[in-house]
Simulated scan of single mutants.
Amino acid sequence: MSRRVVVLTDRTQVPDGRSLRDVLDAAADGGLTTVLLREVDLPDDERAEIADHARSRGLEVVAAHRPVPGCSGVHLPAGTALPDVAMRWGRSCHDRADLARAAADGAWWATLSPYTVTASKPGYGPPLPVSAFAQPPLPVFALGGITPENAAAARSAGAWGVAVMGAVMRAADPAAVVAALLAAAG
């Protein structure tokens, strides 16, 4: 993942009257370059169609949980086996021990969550101490409750970048939110 902001998809959070593709289009218009395609409940062919659309908008696509043809990597849940395909991969982590395991296993990046309270997963937490993000053993994206208002603080705490879902998926103006995140996260 090449930029300091990555957006995770969740079509269930997209407001009525818009589609996930609409949000991806707006996010690309706002300057987003990397999307982490979740939608793990969908069949692979439907995920591939979403990925194709995102790539048509110039977005690098990383697939969650399992590879999708044409994606640049795969992002695995914490504690799962290493991918059996030759591609870049990352892992969801929830503490420093998870980060150490991901780095030792050869992950290229990790998400570390929750950074703060998150509306996307009510009751998930508690938020990690800021020290959890200091000097990680691999590039870490702070995840969980990230907004344009706290993205710079997450970077200052030691996160390489920020991973955002709800703030973009639920936004009235996803392009503006992405632009603000990019400005805040550097």
Rank of each mutant, 00 (worst) to 15 (best):
C93P: 06
L181W: 01
S120E: 07
L32S: 05
L37Y: 08
A102L: 11
G186T: 13
A183R: 12
P43Y: 07
L24F: 11
V40G: 03
L8Q: 08
A184K: 00
V74R: 10
R88D: 14
D84Q: 11
A179K: 12
R21Y: 00
V74Y: 08
L59V: 04
A134Y: 04
H65Q: 15
D10A: 13
V140T: 12
L143T: 06
E46W: 10
Y115F: 15
W109N: 02
T80R: 11
T116L: 07
V130P: 04
S113W: 11
A153M: 12
T12R: 15
Y115R: 06
L82N: 01
A151R: 00
R88F: 04
T116Y: 03
V74K: 12
R3K: 09
P136N: 08
V6C: 10
K121W: 06
A157S: 15
D16R: 13
A180H: 01
L36H: 14
H94F: 11
I50A: 04
T118I: 05
V40I: 14
V14W: 13
P148Q: 02
P127W: 09
T34G: 00
F133V: 04
D29P: 00
G73N: 02
G31T: 07
Y124H: 12
E60V: 11
Y124G: 02
L76V: 01
L99S: 04
V6W: 00
G186E: 15
D84C: 05
V178T: 09
A151L: 02
T9A: 11
A132M: 09
A185R: 02
R55D: 03
A48P: 01
G123A: 12
A63P: 06
V14Y: 13
H53F: 15
R18W: 14
